[in-house]
Design a protein around this nucleic acid. Structure first.
Length: 307
DNA sequence: TTCCGGGCTA
DNA sequence: TAGCCCGGAA
């Protein structure tokens, strides 16, 4: 790995980078519904929960229906958790539907039905971590915080550190971003969004569109000739086919679409899929048990249903 | 057909 | 640190 240059001394015109990127965002930003004027903090929070693991195009219809049905935290909190799981549909990682429901209960009961604006209070809510807490504070309330998601981390790695790909999250990510933020809170919020947007649609992981990049002139990675200097790759993701994840997803799909509780046998059969692969005979039961442990299904008299 | 992105919890 | 879901990109 090349020695990184002594950090800020020789780096040019950071304010120019921020200004240029924000100007680009003003015309290039996708027209996403949660970016509309007047979107409530709750609606912003819901969008961030959904976007934690799911691409924008798949989130939009679920988010729209969710906000229409549950326009406030207390509206969701009044439902049983299973309704949140069902409405989550196939967004993936359904534990997050449970967490969002729990967060709604916490906001309704502990915060007077008002989404907190303080990062520490946001972090204390179920399912909210460092990214989501700062995203809500910055985008819903205009608070001055660095917001760093995986897209921003990749932009920082390339533009600031000259490294082809971001590795594991670094302790310096938030400091790096904070150093770039304009002092004005509203401008800082725009810049946070702009950096994420650049990572999402231009500075992409696999095929970055460097010719179309508005901050190419500032990019250390480009300046170095696009070296293939990534640190170790992140551990490769296990195959989905044949995985416990897949088995869990199949059970959840069955339980979500069933108006009535389903028998345990039906659930275990669903876990096996069409091919009835016998490679791991313990998997269906393991998947079933793990869903119960996660609270995503409950079993009553040998029948499984949403909580 | 395979690969991989995405933040959080325990 | 591992585990979690699905769909679109390669």
């Amino acid at each position: 790995m090349p020695t990184s240059r002594s950090v800020p001394a020789s780096t040019p015109d950071r304010a120019g980078l921020a200004r240029t990127l924000s100007n680009w965002f003003a015309h290039a930003a996708r027209d996403l519904p949660w970016r509309a004027q007047g979107t409530s903090p709750w609606a912003v929070l819901v969008s961030e929960f959904m976007l934690q693991q799911t691409q924008v195009d798949r989130v939009i219809p679920r988010w729209t229906a969710w906000i229409e049905r549950w326009p406030t935290p207390s509206a969701l909190a009044a439902e049983v958790p299973g309704e949140a799981v069902r409405a989550w549909d196939r967004l993936g990682y359904p534990r997050r539907a449970l967490w969002l429901h729990r967060a709604a209960v916490e906001i309704a009961t502990l915060h007077g039905d008002v989404v907190p604006r303080d990062v520490q209070q946001l972090l204390a809510l179920t399912g909210i971590g460092p990214y989501t807490a700062r995203a809500v504070a910055a985008f819903a309330y205009g608070e001055h915080h660095p917001v760093v998601d995986t897209n921003t981390r990749r932009v920082l790695a390339r533009a600031i550190h000259g490294i082809a790909a971001a590795g594991m999250p670094r302790s310096t990510d938030l400091d790096d971003m904070a150093a770039l933020l304009p002092p004005d809170p509203a401008e800082a919020a725009v810049f946070n969004a702009a950096a994420m947007e650049l990572g999402a649609i231009v500075c992409t992981a696999r095929t970055p569109l460097c010719d179309a990049c508005p901050i190419a002139a500032w990019c250390e990675w480009r300046g170095a000739g696009y070296p293939d200097n990534s640190p170790e790759k992140r551990p490769k993701q296990a195959k989905f086919e044949g995985s416990d994840r897949q088995a869990r997803g199949r059970i959840m799909a069955l339980v979500r679409r069933s108006a009535e509780p389903v028998s345990r046998d039906a659930a275990l059969n669903a876990a096996r899929g069409k091919h009835r692969e016998p490679h791991d005979v313990t998997q269906p039961q393991r998947a079933y048990d793990s869903l119960i442990a996660d609270g995503l299904i409950v079993e009553l008299e040998g029948r499984a249903q949403l909580p």
